[in-house]
Nucleic acid binder design. Structure first.
Lengths: 146, 146
DNA sequence: GTGGGTGCAAAAGATTTGCAACCAG
DNA sequence: CTGGTTGCAAATCTTTTGCACCCAC
């Protein structure tokens, strides 16, 4: 399980005959700066890098997000209708779940041992090998309830 | 909470000044024939109706799926990367969760009171009004483990 | 008859890919 | 140097939409 710093990114890449490019570094560093609870879409990652005057094309952002997710540096989310999002896969930030406001998109995180247990049990019941489980709670936040 | 038969579909539609068309009937009937555990994408619904020689355009399938989900006849799922899927919203089949094989897409369902409780508790913690919660377990099925 | 619905084709997003130029190792 | 990577544009794929025609009520 890699920890998200440039050194381990470089090692992980080289292990696979891949290269550490400025673009890949920039994408991962953006997530690190933003911190653990930050959920970004490809478009947003690209926009934020452009705002920082860092040159990366949108196509490369898409390629890099998939790569970083495959390598375990990022976690892919399937929260809302508006496309895929990614967050930093931080060691002490794993196994958390999301409450999403269906009106404004505001998202809160929480942890729950009983949810983890339920997921593990369900996988075992069907003879599946568990990878990860995520609980998505759709709700309406206080503000949007008016 | 409507039960999924043509009568209540007709009533629900008329209540809103809408009309019961053959196309809408065909889409809902397809889900009813397939049963509760069936997860279909818009493309699949369209293809299956075409195979049955029932004329519905893909655009209408999309419009109808959204309508039936809004009306509560169908439940929208956010399981995999490959687009949205829908399933029948059956009364004695609510509040269930999914274990999905990330290799072959095979999907199993299960229920869990503790997951429901955890979702409700999380919503309350943040002062959100709960709508629904779903646990998605990503795993690898027995066959795909080789 | 009238307004909602449908089909079609075009439009709009989101994501992927082919390819020539580039550059990390 | 050399092969992996990038940027760009074109290609895909999914979903939505404008509009003329149609039909459920």
């Amino acid at each position: 399980m890699p920890s998200p710093d440039d050194g381990s990114l470089e090692d992980g890449l080289h292990q696979d005959g891949r290269r550490l490019t400025p673009q890949r570094k920039r994408v991962l560093e953006l997530f690190e700066r933003r911190g653990s609870g930050c959920h970004l879409s490809a478009e947003e990652v690209h926009q934020q890098l452009v705002d920082l005057k860092l040159k990366v094309s949108l196509a490369t952002v898409y390629r890099t997000l998939r790569l970083l997710a495959d390598m375990g540096f990022l976690q892919e989310l399937e929260l809302s209708e508006g496309g895929r999002r990614f967050e930093l896969a931080d060691d002490d930030h794993r196994d958390h779940h999301h409450v999403v406001c269906i009106r404004c998109g505001r998202t809160e995180e929480f942890e729950s041992d009983s949810v983890l247990a339920a997921g593990a049990e369900a996988a075992q019941t069907f003879n599946f090998k568990l990878i990860e489980s995520s609980l998505n709670v759709r709700a309406i936040c206080a503000d949007c309830q008016n």
